[in-house]
């Protein structure tokens, strides 16, 4: 995999794997409609993220049981699945936060677990982990940028831009510990973006975020994808994924049940119906008889 040459005349010039470069505005997303993107790689461009045989168990519980995924460059990739499906575990392993029991993670063809510098090309928004919340919003973003090796003028300019983009300018000097849940999500997203990664991995990015901020973030991500970046989001909200994403993978029980472009996966039905069909587990409409309230 790692030796695969990059080819494909139709793709936008992607950020070179090393060093990270901000996604430059460039002509439209050409790869979005590439129907072959989900067939086994081989004659295709190197995917932004390729996961091979990823496996992880906690004690006796197997959380991820051999997942293969190809996330094409320039795609907006949705990861959906019921609670406990292994989404967070998969994304943690794909971003270097959790050691896999087995399997490989290739970011633009380079092994993330073999070469730590690859982490600089990935932006991460984990779910359920704390932040260094005794810093102010501006300090936290600055910290994230400096950790990535950016210099101060660059970080300062990008911090200002990002605070404006996620609508936190007024709260830049407030400690993150005093932020609301949605504001915390937004500042964490800014931290994931500050080093202009070529791959963004976002775990539940819209949870607790208000509709206006969510719309702003969606626009931001769409233009990022439009300029050649790749985004992976996990979500429970099928409707959102169907509207926003070009590709989707359905995960349950630590395995991939279906993956491909949104059109392929939903096969004419709505994504939600298809999801329920794939995952199963809907109870019949009988309901709880005793729950019906009498009107007295």
């Amino acid at each position: 995999m790692a030796g695969l040459a990059y080819r494909g005349p139709v793709t936008v010039p992607p950020p070179p794997p090393e060093p990270p470069v901000p996604p430059a505005p460039s002509p439209g997303p050409a790869q979005l409609s590439d129907p072959a993107a989900t067939t086994p790689a081989g004659s295709l461009p190197v995917p932004a993220l390729a996961v091979r045989g990823l496996w992880r168990s906690f004690g006796r519980k197997v959380a991820v049981a051999g997942i293969d995924l190809d996330v094409p460059r320039g795609s907006f990739y949705g990861l959906v699945g019921p609670n406990g499906a292994g989404k967070t575990t998969t994304l943690s392993m794909a971003t270097g936060l959790l050691v896999p029991d087995a399997g490989r993670v290739l970011v633009h063809g380079r092994d993330l677990w073999a070469d730590p510098t690859v982490k600089g090309t990935v932006g991460v928004l984990p779910d359920g982990l704390r932040l260094f919340d005794r810093l102010t919003g501006a300090q936290l973003i600055t910290y994230a940028g400096l950790l990535q090796g950016l210099d101060r003028p660059t970080v300062a300019a990008r911090t200002a831009d990002l605070l404006a983009a996620v609508d936190l300018v007024a709260d830049r000097d407030t400690l993150v510990v005093d932020y609301s849940a949605g504001m915390t999500k937004k500042v964490a997203l800014a931290c994931a973006l500050v080093h202009a990664p070529s791959l963004l991995v976002l775990d539940e990015p819209f949870e607790a975020v208000d509709p206006i901020s969510a719309a702003n973030i969606r626009d931001l991500l769409a233009s990022y994808v439009g300029s050649g970046g790749t985004v992976i989001v996990s979500s429970h909200v099928m409707d959102l994924v169907q509207r926003m994403c070009s590709h989707v993978a359905v995960i349950a029980g630590g395995r991939v049940l279906a993956a491909g472009t949104v059109e392929e996966v939903r096969a004419g039905a709505s994504l939600e119906d298809r999801f329920v069909e794939l995952v199963g587990g809907r109870t019949t409409g009988e309901g709880l008889a005793w729950l019906r309230t009498s009107s007295d």
Partner: peptide, 29 residues
Amino acid sequence: TGGSARGLGWFGVLPDRPLGAIAARSLTY
């Protein structure tokens, strides 16, 4: 009563390397 701090504090003073950033974070804490 929220806490706040103007500007970047130590992050604006110490060298803009990962090392300096971590020292700044440490000092702030």
